[in-house]
Design a protein around this nucleic acid. Structure first.
Lengths: 140, 140
DNA sequence: GTCTTAACTTGAAATCATTGCAAAGTTACA
DNA sequence: TGTAACTTTGCAATGATTTCAAGTTAAGAC
């Protein structure tokens, strides 16, 4: 996807979420769309600082909060670490390696989208922990 | 389960986790075993303060950290709130109501205990969000 | 286009859950 | 009972996130 398409998509998503299309928000959302690395607020701030030297960390936090409240992005709280954010391209689960700490996207097993008993489910998140292939190899 | 049995079980669990059996730890673990409310560190501190006036909040944090590192209890990080803790009586998933904020235990759907591709899974956590039956009724 | 206003951004200061630390107390095992 | 290692305690420090007030900008009306 080229930058123009990205910007357009980000723009549309903001509109759909009822948020104004500021340069900062488009930059932040585009960044999330292009990177599968589950960045933290600070990661995003660091990455965008070169291109937008005036962008403040507070704006990054504000934007991420607004986007996740609107359901446009996912907020991941893993262990005691800081919050990580994720643009959901397709449904996937997360795997965290206890050894190297990396977070991987793994395919979401087919789950019932209900948990019965009159609970109305809006979102499902599956969080695996264990050892990733690389660390498993190194141990042997 | 009476208090004596509880204390005994807590004691055994600490032994198995390789931790010393202090009064504080037994009290904290027993509290978690008796309450399905996913308390935060502060909740536990408040609840135990009457019985153990000298117990410090730091001890509660230390104990919860040690127990969750030993795998004896679960650490839940839901949204931006503080951490919550959970004694796993049986395998279950968590449901958070976006409306009232309550966290419910719901049955864990049968999932593959693997996510394929050479990832070795130690633990799975499923986190639903949506509307609980009570809030659903109130809306109508 | 330009006007107007509510929404957004900014940087600094404040908040608050959690951790670090050092001294005092306790557990476990010989 | 003695001893060494582990725990507890209270306070101070940390660090991610939020608050705040002032300046800036997007978006719709004219």
């Amino acid at each position: 996807m080229d930058t123009k398409t990205m910007t357009y998509q980000a723009s549309e998503l903001l509109k759909k979420a009822g948020l104004r299309q500021s340069h900062q928000r488009i930059a932040i959302l585009s960044y999330l769309m292009m990177h599968d690395i589950h960045p933290s607020a600070e990661d995003i701030y660091d990455a965008l600082h070169r291109e937008y030297p005036s962008m403040s960390l507070t704006t990054v936090y504000n934007t991420l909060k607004a986007l996740s409240e609107a359901g446009a992005i996912n907020l991941l709280r893993l262990e005691n670490e800081r919050a990580h954010f994720d643009f959901p391209k397709m449904q996937h689960a997360h795997f965290r390696c206890r050894c190297c700490g990396q977070i991987f996207d793994v395919p979401m097993v087919e789950t019932a989208t209900s948990c019965g008993n009159g609970f109305q489910v809006d979102s499902i998140e599956i969080y695996y922990q264990g050892t990733c292939p690389d660390c498993k190899d190194k141990k042997q």
